[in-house]
Amino acid sequence: MAYAQPTPILEVRDLHVEFDTMSGLVQGLRGVSFSVMPGETLALVGESGSGKSVTAQAVMGLIGLPGSIVSGDILWKGQSLLTPEGQKKAASLRGKSLSMVFQDPMTSLNPLMTIGAHLVEVLRRHMKLSKPQAFARGVELLEAVGITEPRRRMAQYPHEFSGGMRQRVMIALAIACEPELLIADEPTTALDVTIQAQVLDLLADLQKSMGLSIVLITHDLGIVAGLCERVAVMYAGSIVEAGSAATVFEQAEHPYTQGLIRSTPRLDDRRDRLVSIEGAPPSLLHPPKGCAFQSRCPVASRQCDTKPARQETPAGGSVSCWTPSLPAWADVAKTTEVHAR
């Protein structure tokens, strides 16, 4: 690899995660690689079960039994976080330089602790502030994430906050110690649409003012287009396509990406019905040997029985497909009609 570029703040290399469940070994991640540059926003896109959240948990060091990282590496500024010294390093980064906002704000706060206690706890731990200093900083943080009357709100409990307000608190907690990288795992999924926009605007503002890198995990392509510079599309535990947001949206190479974009409603396209991708993702208990998308791919061929290697695309991205850039879904409407007997 050429290192003309600056070192990525986070690099994930060929990560494999397995879960030892009652029904067998589930391969949660099957070779995930990506990197995040300082100040960059990367979107991890994919449907439920594609491994987005597992990736985030692996980076945060939150994979617990029955899951484990089988192979691959996670590097922070070029230093592995999985070696014994790396794990110590990871423990000191977590919550400070590397922080995370979770999907469900309703259950993410301790119901028996005040909002202030949460903020003071994290500030005292990582910023070595005294209690009054931490409290004062906590008030500032609540103000920064757009919570009115922050001083009064500090003394309140999570159940006195709405979902959107709780997510703002989660963001305040995540940025409290001036992180360099923020992982946001579907931060708006549990929120109303109007609140979603506010929370995303907040994230975008914070990124500009603090210069942080963001890994945004979502299944909502609309969010990606507005907020992210680069996109990585996940399917069945691996990344099938990656590139700049513009190229991935305009000239998607992988049939799955193309299908995803087709199935997203657009204002400028007055189709009668939305087209879905037929079928379901493969079970990660017994994943297929070849391309995981094979069974749902309209342009699959015999070649696809062997796993396609990752290759660079002309636009500077990468794709794992034997026949990239084929307009796979050109006549998908006809195909579905044929299939619907």
């Binding site: 000191s92 979770f102 993410s108 119901p111 995540a174």
Partner: peptide
Amino acid sequence: NQQYVRTAKARGM
């Protein structure tokens, strides 16, 4: 196993 425990761990507690 609650979510708030996971977020506390993620905050480096």
